[in-house]
């Protein structure tokens, strides 16, 4: 964090030292790990069920609050995911079986409005319980940094990065090595074919939805370690997730990782040229540019070259 502050002072200074460049680059990679985790939750649900889960933003936010609340009870924020994530996985499964199953049969407009409604409820819940103050978790580890040559790395960001990567790798293993995982992928590729080959689509959809929500919750827990948040938290990250998914394409794991790195780089380096207050705009501008130039995402460029 400390290097970002020094940059703020020289808003319009375009030249940067090599050290700054290196630090920005490292920070981008670390952020990308978190971004990829967060986006994969959205991509999984869209890929398998063709639903745009707007309540993604609410799950991120409430998971962050969950971590915060557990912290006030004396439970370490590093352990909070072990409680918060399974809880959200369960909520996801229940949702799918009760409400979302019905929504899937309706036109897309209905699912957008439905999830938007759920998100509003979540936001208001947070306002009621936690009020509108900006919260953050600080402990002795928050400011701990490691020096590695010219690099200054914050411990929490490193933890977040590795936790995110671990989650994604295990998910990838699950999707490729287990029956359920392969069934999820089959469902995403062709729902009709999956049904015909005897996959219990209801159960597998529920699993995918639960996993998508759980991933969002995990990302939310991680965010609580490094960001400040309020009930509005999550909206800009919903857009970021979507931007990454559009950049990377829905079907590919590598694509999401690439998209996450692109967005993180764009965000971190743009602070060099514009006020930090506008940072949340970067994802929006990037999204519009990508849609104008490469609407099929980065992977289409790679594939096109062959």
């Amino acid at each position: 964090m400390c290097f970002q502050i020094s940059i703020l002072n020289s808003q319009f200074q375009i030249l940067m030292s090599f050290d700054t460049f290196l630090n920005l680059f490292a920070a981008s990679i670390l952020t990308a790990g978190l971004y990829a985790t967060m986006s994969y939750g959205l991509a999984l649900i869209y890929g398998v069920m063709k639903l745009t889960n707007l309540s993604h933003a609410g799950v991120l936010m409430l998971a962050a609050y969950g971590t915060y609340w557990l912290n006030t009870l004396g439970i370490s924020p590093y352990l909070a995911p072990f409680i918060v994530v399974p809880l959200w996985f369960g909520i996801g499964i229940v949702w799918q079986h009760t409400l979302v199953k019905r929504i899937m049969l309706m036109p897309p407009i209905a699912s957008l409005l439905f999830f938007f409604g759920i998100w509003l409820i979540m936001q208001n819940f947070a306002y009621l319980v936690f009020k509108s103050d900006i919260r953050s978790i600080t402990n002795e580890a928050t400011l701990l940094t490691y020096k590695l040559g010219p690099l200054v790395l914050s411990q929490n960001r490193l933890i977040v990065f590795f936790a995110g990567i671990t989650a994604l790798v295990s998910l990838q293993l699950f999707l490729t090595r287990t029956y359920q995982g392969r069934a999820i992928r089959a469902l995403a590729a062709d729902a009709e074919a999956a049904r015909l080959s005897g996959i219990d689509t209801d159960r597998i959809s529920a699993l995918a939805f639960g996993l998508g929500i759980a991933l969002a919750a995990f990302a939310g827990c991680l965010m609580a370690l490094i960001f400040a948040f309020d009930p509005e938290f999550g909206r800009s990250h919903l857009l970021k997730s979507f931007c990454i998914v559009v950049l990377g394409g829905l079907e590919s794991f590598v694509g999401v990782a690439l998209g996450a790195i692109m967005l993180a780089l764009a965000e971190n380096f743009s602070i060099q040229f514009m006020p930090a207050a506008l940072q949340d705009m970067v994802s929006f501008v990037l999204l519009v540019i990508v849609l104008l130039t490469i609407p099929n995402g980065l992977m289409s460029l790679l594939k096109g070259k062959k």
């Binding site: 929504i103 409005l113 409604g117 759920i118 509003l120 409820i121 979540m122 936001q123 208001n124």
Partner: peptide, 13 residues
Amino acid sequence: LMLYGLLLVLIIL
């Protein structure tokens, strides 16, 4: 917000 959200969900369902 909760009422609005609830209203949306109920109407859609």
